[in-house]
Design a protein around this nucleic acid. Structure first.
Lengths: 346, 346
DNA sequence: ACCCCAGGTGACAACGTTGTCCAGCGACTA
DNA sequence: TAGTCGCTGGACAACGTTGTCACCTGGGGT
C-alpha cells in the first residue's frame, strides 16, 4: 500500500469536473456549464443527458474556480468579539438572515477583543475576497482596511465606531441610554450612584460613562471618583469594584452597570447583601424579569443593529455611492423593579 | 460619466496581482509568490524590493486562486440550528477556536430547523470546497452528503445523529441525563411527573422522552399519556401544555423540561402559580441559579461538544483512517432547588 | 435553388495563484 | 583554468470555471 493509495480517495483531484461530465454526456464543456447555471440555449434532450451525467458522477460545481473567474464571492465576513456572548447571537443571526436573502454566505470569526486578532481575521477574510465585511471593532485604528475598502470591499462597523477611517457605522445610543438610566435612578431618589463599566479603551464604555456623568451633572450632583470603575468584565474584577463602592463610609445606594456581563455579576453580588441597592443595567438579557428583584435595563436591539448593518452593506454592494453613514439605534428603558428601589435613607 | 467609470473603482480587477508586484519590483512572478509565502531561496535584497512593491500597491494575495490551485481551502463549515440560541454560542465558539488553532476559517449558517435549508447550506459549503463540515442536523436523512464525504469532506455530526449514513458523531447523553433528572424528582417523592419536550422528529427529544419513561418504569410507575407533550418550543405551545398538566383533576406535581427554551417558559408559568411545582430542566442556562427557586438542571457541555467535534474533524483531515466514531458527552445534574421541592400531598 | 438567419454547441482564453523544471551566475575545487 | 556545485530567479503549465466568439445545422423566405 503506497502512500498515494492511502491518500487518493481523499484527494480533491478525484472529484469530477465539468470536463468529466462533458465527456460522459458526450457534449462540450461549455454546454455543461450552461446546464449547471441554468442558462438558456440547451435542448431539453441535451440537458437531460447532462443532468444524468451529473448525478451519475456526483458532480458539484467548484465554487472556488467560479469565484476566481467571476470576481464576486457571494459571501460576507463578520468579525465579532465573541460568538458565545448572548449580545452577538441575535446580531449575527440578523446579519446572516439578510445575507441569505441576498444569496450570500456568512464567514465569521471572533476577535476575543484583541485588536491584532481582529486585524488578522479581517484581512484573512479580505484575502478570501469576501464581498463585504461587518466588523465589531476590537481595536481603534482601522486604517489597515483602507486599501480593501478602496478595492471595493463594502465595510460596515457595528456597535463601536471605526478608528481613523471613514466608514458606514451602526451604533446603539449608548450615551442617551445611559443618561436615561441614571436619570431613572435619580428620579427614584438616589444621589450616590456608582458606575461599573467595561475597559475605557472601548468606545461604548466611554460613551456610557459620559451619559452617566451628564445625567449626574444635569442633576447638579458631584461624582466621586470612587463611584466610577472601568475595567474588564471578569466577575472577580466587577465584584471587587462593587464591594469597594458598597462598603465605603458613604456607600452608593444605586449601581449602573455598563453592560450585560457586568449586570449579571452585580445581580449576584447584590443578592448576597441585606441592604437593598438599586440597579440598572445597560443591555437587556434573558430572564432579567425573573430574578428578584427583576432587573431594570436599558435595552438595545442587537437584531436590528445586525439588520441595519447588513442592509447598509448590501446597499453599497448594489452600487450606492453616497458618503459613509452613521446610524444610531435607539435604546429603551425597561423598568422592572431593581431600578425603582428607593435609597434606605432617602 | 459612463457606467464603466462609476463601477471601475469597485472592480476586483483593479486589485493588484502578483504580476503587478513582480513588474514593479522588477522580478519574476514566482519570486513574488515565494516572498508572499515565506518560501526560502530569495536574497534579502530581492525580498526587500518585493515587500516594498507589495506595500506600495496594497497587494493582498487572492485566496480564491490559491484555493483553486492547492485544492485545500483551510476553512470548515458549520451548519447549526440557530446562531442566536444560547446553546449554540459556546458550541460554535469552541469549533472556531479549534479551527483557528489549525489555521482554518469558519463559515457558518443556520438551518432554522428546516431540513431543506440544512441541505442547501451544507451543499453550498461543499461547493465552496470546505475541508470539513460540522453539522447539527435538522433533517433525518443525510444521504445527500455521501458523495461529498466520499470526495474527502470530513464530516462530523453534533448534538443529533446523522440519518441513514455512517459518520463521526458527538452527542450529549440525553437518555442518561433525562433518566437522572427524573430519578431525582422521584427521589424527592414525586409520582406524577410531566415531560414537555421538543418535536418528536428531533432525536434528542426522543431520547429524553425515553430516559423519562425508563426512569418512571424503573420506579414501577405508570405514565399517563396526558403527562407527555412534545412539540415546538414556542412559549405559547409550552404554556398550553403545562396548563393542561397542572390543571388536570390529578395534576402533575413536577415537570421535566426537555430543553432550555422549554425550561425558561416553564419558569415563567410556574412563578404565576401558588402551588409549588418541582422543575428540572435539560440543559443549563445563564442565571438558572438566580431565579427563585433556582432551577435544577441536567447540564450539557456545549463547548466540550464543539471541541470534540472539531477535534474529530481535524483528525480526519490529518489522515486518520478509522471507522466512524460516536462520542457521547456525559451530562451532570446540578441541584439548585427547583427539583428538590416535595409534592404537596407527598 | 440559393441565401440568410437563428438557435444550439463547442474551442479557447482568461481569472491569479502555485508547482515543476530549467537557466544563469558566482564560487569553490581539482 | 576548467569543471562543478549551489543558490537565486523565471518561464510555463495547471487548477476548474465562465465569457467570447465562431461554427454548424436546419428551416424559412425569395
Amino acid at each position: 500500500m503506497t502512500d498515494t493509495a492511502r491518500g487518493s480517495s481523499r484527494r480533491y483531484g478525484t472529484r469530477p469536473t465539468m470536463k468529466d461530465v462533458a465527456a460522459r454526456a458526450g457534449v462540450g464543456l461549455k454546454t455543461v456549464s450552461r446546464v449547471v447555471n441554468g442558462e438558456p440555449g440547451v435542448t431539453p434532450d441535451t440537458e437531460h443527458r447532462v443532468q444524468e451525467a451529473i448525478t451519475a458522477l456526483g458532480f458539484r460545481r467548484n465554487d472556488s474556480a467560479r469565484i476566481l473567474r467571476k470576481g464576486r464571492t457571494a459571501s460576507i465576513g463578520l468579525v465579532l468579539e465573541d460568538l458565545a456572548d448572548p449580545f452577538y447571537g441575535p446580531l449575527s443571526r440578523a446579519v446572516e438572515e439578510v445575507a441569505r436573502h441576498h444569496g450570500a454566505l456568512l464567514i465569521n470569526g471572533s476577535s476575543a477583543e484583541d485588536p491584532a486578532r481582529e486585524q488578522e481575521l479581517a484581512l484573512a477574510l479580505c484575502a478570501r475576497r469576501v464581498d463585504g465585511l461587518v466588523v465589531i471593532p476590537a481595536g481603534d485604528d482601522h486604517r489597515y482596511l483602507a486599501p480593501e475598502i478602496a478595492a471595493g470591499v463594502a465595510t460596515v462597523f457595528v456597535d463601536r465606531p471605526a478608528g481613523r477611517i471613514e466608514a458606514d457605522t451602526v451604533l446603539s445610543d449608548s450615551f442617551g441610554g445611559s443618561r436615561d438610566a441614571v436619570a431613572h435612578l435619580l428620579a427614584h431618589g438616589h444621589r450616590r450612584i456608582g458606575f461599573i463599566g467595561d475597559r475605557p479603551r472601548i468606545h461604548t464604555a466611554k460613551e456610557r460613562l459620559r451619559g452617566y456623568r451628564t445625567a449626574m451633572a444635569a442633576a447638579g450632583l458631584p461624582v466621586d471618583d470612587a463611584w466610577v470603575s472601568l475595567g474588564t468584565t471578569e466577575p472577580e474584577r466587577v465584584r471587587t469594584a462593587a464591594r469597594a463602592m458598597l462598603d465605603a463610609p458613604e456607600p452608593v445606594t444605586a449601581l449602573f452597570a455598563g453592560n450585560n456581563r457586568v449586570t449579571v455579576t452585580l445581580v449576584r453580588v447584590l443578592r448576597q447583601r441585606t441592604a437593598p441597592v438599586a440597579l440598572v443595567g445597560f443591555d437587556d438579557f434573558e430572564l432579567a424579569d425573573l430574578v428578584s428583584p427583576a432587573v431594570t435595563v436599558v435595552a438595545q436591539d442587537p437584531a436590528r443593529m445586525g439588520r441595519t448593518a447588513a442592509g447598509l452593506l448590501f446597499r453599497r454592494l448594489e452600487g450606492a455611492d453616497e458618503p459613509p453613514r452613521r446610524e444610531e439605534i435607539p435604546t429603551r428603558l425597561i423598568a422592572r423593579g431593581s431600578g425603582e428601589i428607593r435609597p434606605a435613607h432617602g
